[in-house]
Amino acid sequence: MKAVIHHGPSGLGGLRISDVKIKQPGLGEVRVRLKAAGLNHRDLFLMEGRQATDRPLILGSDGAGIIEEVGKGVSDHMVGNEVIIHPTIGWERTEEVPVVPEILGGPMDGTFAETVVIPAGNAFRKPLYLSWEEAGVLPLSALTAYRALFTRAQIKAGEHVLIPGIGGGVATYAMLMAQAAGAVVSVTSRSEAKLVEARRYSLHRAFSSDGDWNEELEGEKVDVILDSIGPATFSQYLKVIKPNGRIISFGASSGDTVDVPLRALFFPQLSWIGTSMGSREEFAEMLQFMEKHRIHPLIDRMYAIDETRSAFQRMMAGEQFGNIGLLFG
């Protein structure tokens, strides 16, 4: 089968399309023939961190397709089911956070291939209202957004949620989910084109990340900030968040180290909370939430598997608004 492999040089230099052997499902596993898959920034981080001595890895955490074969202990009735793949392996219960969860696409082979073998419990029914493209790009980003908003931030209707750096998959899911939950949503971006696109979604405010946030919000404070950026914008958060507010960090696109004056945290009683991905329980809840509110993933562009390098180049350039994905024949 055809697959997107990373092997050799770090970064995009090690990316290649190869023919690999189709794997057989083992005990408790199923093999899914992929219809579509989604790119994540996680794929780029993995490629940058890999060494020439590392084994070849099939990338990709997101995907949706049709079960074509099952292993021992799995009902034959699952064959033919249209499914969406939960990418986190072995994280069952929300409160039992693993030290390092196993994820499809690293360390396990992932979804950028014509087929993938996964535990049967990680195959969820594809919501009928979603197209294959929408289902394929949904899993990891939507799960991350759901956990950040509802498990960690515990947002409530009427609260003001600020999402800096709108445009990527997690941020656009969070925007749609928070609005569906009745929150007031504002966003920032350095790109005027992305702000223009974001304003199509009935936002409270959409303004430049480079400006004075207090001025842009006209002195209005926010309850929750979803942080995927880190040091480049963190000082702004402390100026616009309400006392007892929550900063939820799930990314670090501008670096890992943030210099925070502790008094700015403890005097206003702020909560700074980390989050990443999510459990099987949360994945089921996320799908139910999406289906209840008929939320459609925002798709920026879909590529053929042979165009995977171009897809990643678009992601690296930060040009997308929504999800970038791959389509399989």
Results as ranks from 00 to 15, higher is better:
L203K: 11
G63W: 13
K72S: 12
I85G: 04
E48P: 00
K126G: 14
L327N: 15
G219V: 11
G251M: 04
G80H: 09
G274H: 08
S276Q: 03
A284K: 10
G325W: 11
G49Q: 02
I66L: 10
E82V: 05
P25Q: 15
V70Y: 12
S131K: 14
S186N: 05
E114A: 03
A206Y: 07
E96R: 14
I103N: 14
R31H: 05
V83G: 09
S249T: 14
E307N: 06
L238M: 11
P119S: 11
W272L: 09
D223P: 00
A64K: 06
I248E: 12
V240C: 06
P119C: 09
Y146F: 04
V240K: 13
V79H: 00
V83Q: 07
E95L: 08
A171V: 06
S228V: 05
M302T: 09
L140T: 11
E96F: 07
V184W: 04
N81V: 03
I58S: 00
K72P: 00
R200E: 15
S209D: 03
G121Q: 15
V258C: 04
S18T: 07
D227P: 04
Q51N: 09
M177L: 08
S228N: 08
H41D: 04
I22H: 03
N122V: 06
H296Q: 10
V83I: 08
G329Q: 15
F150E: 07
A148V: 03
G121E: 15
K126N: 11
E220N: 08
I5G: 00
M315G: 13
F283E: 12
A180Y: 08
S228L: 07
A37Y: 01
S310R: 03
H6Q: 10
A311F: 05
L39I: 02
G168S: 09
Q236S: 14
A232G: 11
P98Q: 08
E216K: 02
E216D: 09
S253N: 07
E220M: 01
I84A: 05
L203D: 11
R152T: 12
T144I: 06
E114S: 03
L298A: 05
L34I: 07
L270D: 15
G60P: 07
L128I: 13
Y303R: 08
L262M: 07
L326I: 15
V222P: 01
N214D: 10
A198V: 02
T233R: 02
G63M: 12
E285D: 14
G274V: 08
P127M: 14
K126I: 12
L217H: 09
D109I: 00
E220Q: 06
L226A: 08
A157G: 05
P9R: 06
H160Y: 05
D306T: 11
